[in-house]
Design a protein around this nucleic acid. Sequence first.
DNA 1: AACACTAATGCAACAAAGTTGCAATGTCGG
DNA 2: CCGACATTGCAACTTTGTTGCATTAGTGTT
Lengths: 144, 144
Amino acid sequence: MATKENPGEILHKYGLKVTATRIRVLDVLINSPVALSHSDIIGLIDDPMIDKVTVYRTLNAFTTQGLTHKVANEDRNWLYALYFHNSNQPATSDDHAHFICRQCERIYCMPITSMNPKPDVREIGGFVITSHEHRIHGVCPECH
Amino acid sequence: MATKENPGEILHKYGLKVTATRIRVLDVLINSPVALSHSDIIGLIDDPMIDKVTVYRTLNAFTTQGLTHKVANEDRNWLYALYFHNSNQPATSDDHAHFICRQCERIYCMPITSMNPKPDVREIGGFVITSHEHRIHGVCPECH
DNA sequence: AACACTAATGCAACAAAGTTGCAATGTCGG
DNA sequence: CCGACATTGCAACTTTGTTGCATTAGTGTT
Ligand SMILES: [Mn+2]
Ligand SMILES: [Mn+2]
Ligand SMILES: [Zn+2]
Ligand SMILES: [Zn+2]
């Protein structure tokens, strides 16, 4: 994220009350280069006292407030990632590219590049197009 | 599909034993312009005697044999569609475009066009790209 | 610092999609 | 028509995520 703000300040900025679980979940997300599942997050926090439902509700609150967004992985579980990750471009939920490693299954949020262009809103055969999600499959730097 | 073959012949061609449930499921898929969920298919067959597990296993068998492919919808349920739908181009699982109507939630398999080009296998910052799924959001002809 | 309002938490129960085990049945080549 | 083997039907199970509700905690105000 390369943000200078601490988790408490970020939560406050996004209209979220500052609680222990939220700080811990946000901390894990800040330090991850890839989108994380609920169980990834539970695993990284690694505290048997953490409540699973609270983490689900935390992730939903983050997403509702626009701090995170979610993307389904190949097993159709939700993964969560901060906006403003790996770039300072706001990654809108409308136009988005995700790189899915076919080896480790990790999903990286990618900036939209010329290779995955945003089309103008336009019509093709009666289909009005307003946005894209580009899901790019391949092998990530960690795996090769 | 615009195929001249009947369901029995198609099943045989794909190495699937011809059974009553498989014929009925395939018939529903042939006559749908959009990808269908398990529950869509159960609803379209509309026979309380049909067994849900058999339909799940039917769809898995179709997909394993390459008769259908599956795509997750926005609720992360699997939708199934024949290959060779809406076009005579084989839609490989590797490179694919799906149009998701934001109004009716239906998903249409789309031929790859110049608007959603297949990239060559190439590297960007250590990411080796081998294929794309283009998920196009908008409004379908039925909804506008 | 204490108050009060409200939101968040923890726990149990629930929901929905899909899978698995197994005995019974059906398909199909010979 | 037979026999080998795949498929079916049923019940039980798994996994991910949600909901209800009583208790606890955060936050702006006094
Ligand atoms: Mn993303
Ligand atoms: Mn498709
Ligand atoms: Zn990888
Ligand atoms: Zn529509």
